[in-house]
Design a protein around this nucleic acid. Structure first.
Length: 652
RNA sequence: GCCCCGGUAGCUCAGCUGGAUAGAGCAUCGGUCUUCUAAACCGAGGGUCGCAGGUUCGAAUCCUGCCCGGGGUGCCA
């Protein structure tokens, strides 16, 4: 049991005579916010006293008198308005460290009641190359999988591929009309990506050509409205001022839309070849949609093409997953659920949940104006239908207790409706959760794009990170009196640092927030980065090399941890908080809690490293104790990073 | 129009769902290599937590209003 839960468990029965449910009060026992107060603090006395009409300090004192933690705590003090501060006995901490040292799981308990958890993440559209937009889902989702798996739950990391949508119609149409056979034979996926891009571009071209005059007209009419209202508006009238501001705002966004539309159009008109293609295929958008429809209806030719393309596309994205060290337990894309969609809609209709509205089949929910559309006017199903069929499959076939959707925050409304629909449909036992996350931004605070405005490919992003890391590795090693890394090693370290940097930078932010992507910061050797933590690990390994210690023997030996310096105690306590940290990460699936703890651990280690010499320590018992602390720190860092799919190296 | 999410140090971000003097990292300034990796360490300065009210022993956190930014909003996913 980790230190925090030891305190909580001791407190739990004491609440019996005060409240029915102690849980919220036990939550109020947490790490001390300032180490001068002690190791942990309890804040429940104030709110509880209020509820009971007592004096908070008296109540806190009552608790302190009853708590039986003499073996564990050196002191329990009531402070301020009624805080209880706990400080552990060093003997108890060192004993716990002894247990941790002997435990392969580093004192992280296995879940008492393992659950079956589906983590739905990554889910790229296979018809186009992966880009930064897929980074967060992939990295966060994979981390969640690793952590819940470590806790002993049955986990299915499922890549719900977009492999059945309109994009496939586009590449099929492109294949039939614009294929460069030679390129396709040499690099099929690149050629398919080119075809997708081309068809998309030409479709958009026609669409935008129609929209541009509409946009212009809208802007004109709004501008006219603006001048008119400006003239007659009373400048003191707040409502009117606000209305004017709104119009101005609308005009600005329309102008932006117009600008981007004109950009896209001129990209085509600027190229004689593209323009000729555009003119030659005025109906391209409709025709591409028809290819999709044919595919969905089971057209032999299209189905054969789809079957030919799909493995190629999957192989391409697998390459990216390979570089990221991401593996899935299941890859059940949209196409897999295709056969069940009609049944789903029929069932919804039969249960009176779905009804026809404006030509589409919809499920309505009380608080929502927008319907949940399960079948479009043209008969096609939507991702809403697929998601419902998927829930059914996951519950019926996989016996899922919980499904976590690691998906962009922008889809929160979809999930709200999906979950409500699923519950009404009968799946009200399962824990459905949208693990939402924010956007990766560029320096301009707009979604991260290349200078030319294209989305950044994930593969090239990883590539660049490794290259930049290699640069740093070279500089670092060359600066040493005698460089110690050979070519292979340098490259291995560069990959570990480069990939680690991207992942860590993503995970260290609260997943709900947007964050700004910054190469310099994420690859910094100092500060809250993967590199810094990996470096701490390498330094520890350096110590073991220097003293020529056998780490395995150390774990089985009879040595014990002793505290001779504050830094040792601080490090020890920090190490013992590993289990508590994992617990709180899983509580709301927030990997940034883990990165923060790892960073603190690395910091605690460097303080220890600076103050407590290992190699030159003359006292054998102290030296051994320090070696144990080093070993534990290394293991905890290695394990912690591994839970995020980040590697370590004993030299760097 | 309606709905959702943000606004915290110069910058990038935490802040564990109401607790003690609001924290990190960069950046800035000043110190550290004859001792286990200086890819490091130690120290200093830096804040009207968007604004205004309210709730209470106590508010960055909860409520109301306003300002600013982003996103979503019936047939893309």
């Amino acid at each position: 049991m980790h230190p925090l839960s030891v305190i909580r468990e001791q407190l739990r029965p004491l609440f019996e005579e005060y409240v029915d449910d102690p849980a919220p009060y036990l939550e109020m026992v947490r790490p001390a916010q300032d180490s001068k107060f002690g190791d942990f603090q309890a804040n429940f006395a104030m709110p509880l006293a209020k509820q009971l009409g007592k004096n908070p300090r008296d109540l806190a004192t009552e608790f302190v008198d009853k708590i039986k933690l003499d073996d564990v705590c050196e002191s329990m003090e009531v402070a301020g308005p009624g805080f209880i501060n706990f400080k552990f006995k060093s003997d108890w901490l060192t004993a716990q460290l002894g247990t941790m040292q002997a435990d392969e799981r580093l004192s992280v308990p296995v879940a008492e009641s393992p659950r079956t958890i589906i983590v739905d993440y990554s889910a790229p559209n296979v018809a186009k190359p992966m880009h930064v937009g897929h980074l967060r889902s992939t990295v966060i989702g994979n981390t969640i999988c690793r952590i819940v798996n470590f806790l002993g739950h049955k986990v299915y990391g499922d890549n719900h591929l977009g492999d059945w949508g309109t994009q496939f119609g586009m590449i099929i149409y492109g294949y039939k009309n614009f294929l460069n056979r030679e390129s396709f034979e040499q690099a099929p996926v690149d050629e398919l990506a080119r075809l997708y891009k081309l068809v998309n571009q030409l479709s958009e071209f026609h669409d935008l050509n129609r929209k541009i005059p509409e946009l212009q007209a809208k802007i004109e009419s709004l501008s006219a409205q603006l001048t008119e209202q400006e003239e007659k508006a009373d400048p003191k009238d707040k409502q009117a001022r606000k209305a004017l501001g709104k119009i101005k705002n609308d005009i600005a966004t329309l102008k932006q839309d117009l600008l981007s539309a004109e950009d896209k159009v001129s990209a085509v008109t600027a190229s004689p070849e593209l323009l000729a293609q555009a003119n030659g295929y005025p109906d391209i958008a409709r025709l591409a949609r028809e290819e999709t429809a044919k595919l969905h209806k089971g057209d032999e030719e299209n189905l054969a093409l789809w079957k030919q393309f799909l493995p190629l596309c999957i192989a391409a994205i697998d390459e990216v997953y390979g570089r990221l060290g991401v593996q899935f337990d299941l890859v059940l894309g949209e196409s897999y659920f295709q056969p069940f969609l009609q049944e789903v809609v029929d069932d919804l209709k039969q249960k009176g949940m779905a009804q026809q509205s404006q030509g589409a089949i919809c499920v309505f929910h009380d608080q929502n104006e927008a319907p949940f559309i399960v079948q479009k006017t043209d008969g096609a199903f939507t991702y809403a239908t697929t998601d419902l069929a998927t829930i059914r499959y996951r519950v019926e076939e996989l016996k899922a207790d919980s499904i976590l959707y690691v998906v962009d925050a922008r889809q929160s409304e979809h999930f709200k409706l999906l979950f409500e629909t699923a519950a009404k449909w009968g799946y009200d036992e399962i824990d459905l959760r949208h693990i939402s996350f924010g956007t990766v931004l560029g320096d301009d605070k707009r979604p991260f794009k290349t200078r030319s405005g294209d989305t950044v490919g994930l593969e090239s992003l990883i590539e660049e990170s490794i290259q930049r890391a290699r640069q740093i590795v070279n500089e670092g090693d060359d600066a040493k009196p005698s460089p110690e890394l050979d070519e292979t090693m340098r490259q291995r370290v560069a990959e570990m640092v480069g990939v680690g940097a991207i992942k860590y930078a993503d995970l260290r932010h609260n997943r709900e927030s947007d964050y700004v992507f910054n190469w310099t910061k994420m690859l910094a050797t100092n500060g809250d980065t993967a590199t810094y933590i990996q470096y701490a690990y390498a330094r520890i390994c350096g110590i073991f090399r220097e003293v020529d210690a056998d780490r395995e023997a150390l774990r089985e030996g009879d040595g014990a941890v002793v505290f001779t310096h504050d830094a040792e105690r601080a490090l020890g306590l920090q190490l013992l908080r590993f289990a508590e940290t994992i617990e709180s990460v899983v509580n709301d699936y927030r990997p940034n809690i883990l990165t923060a703890w790892l960073f603190e651990t690395a910091n605690a280690f460097t303080t220890f490293y600076g103050n407590c010499h290992v190699k030159n320590e003359p006292d054998a018992a102290i030296k051994k104790s320090r070696l144990i602390l080093c070993d534990l720190t290394a293991r905890v860092i290695d394990q912690g990073l591994a839970l995020m799919g980040i590697q370590t190296s004993d030299k760097m």
